[in-house]
Simulated assay, not measured.
Amino acid sequence: MTEAGGPAGWAARLSGGPPILVTGAAGFIGFHVATRLLDNGVPVVGLDDLNDYYDPALKRARLDRLDRHEAFRFVEAGLEDERTVRRLFAETRPETVCHLAAQAGVRHSIENPGAYARSNLTGFLNVLEGCRAVGAKHLAFASSSSVYGGNTRLPFSVANGADHPVSLYAATKKANEAMAHSYAHLYGLPTTGLRFFTVYGPWGRPDMAYFIFADAIRAGRPIRLFNNGEMERDFTYIDDIVEGVVRILARPARPDPGFDSASPDPARSWAPWRLYNIGNRRSERLTDFVDILEREIGRKAIREFAPMQPGDVAATCADIRELEAEVGFRPDTRLEDGLARFVRWHRDWTANRANLGAP
């Protein structure tokens, strides 16, 4: 669906001011968002700590592509480094901040909870403080479909409750939404939370199931399907995610004049604060997902079935009517098409890594 005023009307609204600060710029979504901004003439300052949660060579390869743009500047630092984050905000004085950095991974949060407190809580507080200090006009930040946790009412709607997270990762994302609201209320900082649903595509994260499956299928190793394969996900192609993000960046959150504090809408506020889902609007069976991967790779998977993992949920599906009403966003990438593009990229990336002698 095309935005009123042209497909890149958002770029005109984001141009002409200071560079946009994109945290997590060497990460999967951050890299694609920064690329889209730069390709449309919007300068970007990128922040990332290039940690080794997954292969840093992939992060550096993404960064190499961003460095080809003259309007891109990179700062290597962790969000928990308060002094560096404060100095970066003071030097660049961004009016728009796209906060996509975080310690990711549901299962990893069970094994290493401290990393999530440092990056997702302390780090997010440092971003909020930076925005407050420079009077930023909009902070858009990554939340997650994981916040819905024990809520099994599909499709997930931002108007419904999300108060029962089942992993620490989800809890930190829910906390981010609450922290952002407090800054919107106290300081008038426009903040928008974006609940992403299972993002996939080229340059993706090696810790995600689709990447793990592709690696294993190519190598003839077994893949594990949890909950005995009875899993459904709202798989959302990266280009659709990026389209939603850049349009939201150009639409700072506004107070809802009709907000009813006696019957509050969980996604709106009297303060300039909003929440949106970004998803593909449909659940896909994990076994069907694997079928497509097999066809694209040209090799059958060795399937092993396992019980549900702690912190996981059986199904997700996004209700995106709020987002569509706000910015005219509707995903249009079929799973078959998106996975075909990912598999082509994965083949090339695997070959390049092998040529470099990487494991």
Rank of each mutant, 00 (worst) to 15 (best):
M1E: 11
T2L: 08
T2I: 13
E3N: 01
G5I: 10
G9H: 11
A12R: 14
P19V: 03
I20V: 15
I20R: 02
I20C: 14
L21N: 01
V22I: 08
H32P: 00
H32T: 03
R36M: 04
L37C: 05
G41H: 00
L47G: 08
L50Y: 02
D55G: 02
A57V: 13
L58V: 06
R60K: 15
R65D: 13
D67T: 12
G78W: 05
L79M: 08
E80H: 12
T84N: 07
R87K: 14
A90S: 12
E91H: 02
E91Y: 04
T96R: 12
L100F: 12
G105E: 09
G105P: 11
R107V: 11
H108S: 13
P113M: 08
G114C: 05
Y116I: 04
Y116S: 12
Y116F: 15
A117H: 14
L125C: 09
V127K: 02
E129M: 02
C131M: 07
R132P: 05
A133F: 00
A136T: 07
K137M: 02
A142M: 08
A142C: 08
A142F: 10
S143Y: 09
S144M: 07
S146L: 01
V147Y: 06
T152Y: 08
T152Q: 14
P155D: 04
A159P: 01
S167I: 07
Y169E: 06
T172A: 08
T172N: 06
K173I: 04
E177I: 11
A180I: 10
Y183S: 03
Y183I: 07
Y187D: 12
L189P: 03
L194Y: 05
L194H: 02
F196R: 01
F196C: 07
Y200W: 07
R205F: 00
A209N: 07
F211C: 10
I217Y: 00
A219W: 00
R224M: 06
N227I: 01
E230A: 15
M231W: 02
E232M: 13
F235D: 02
Y237K: 09
I238G: 11
V242I: 12
I248W: 00
I248M: 12
A250R: 01
A250N: 05
G258Y: 00
G258R: 11
D260A: 04
D260M: 03
A262W: 10
P266Q: 08
A267V: 05
A267E: 03
A267F: 07
A271D: 09
R274A: 14
N277K: 12
N280Q: 14
R282P: 01
E284D: 15
L286Q: 13
T287S: 10
T287F: 00
F289M: 14
L293H: 04
I297V: 06
F305R: 12
F305V: 01
Q309P: 01
D312N: 12
D312R: 11
V313K: 04
V313L: 12
A315L: 03
T316H: 13
A318D: 06
E324N: 13
A325K: 09
E326C: 11
V327A: 05
G328E: 06
P331N: 02
L335C: 03
A340G: 07
W345K: 06
D348H: 09
T350V: 14
R353G: 11
R353T: 09
A354G: 04
N355K: 15
L356P: 00
A358R: 14
A358L: 15
A358E: 15
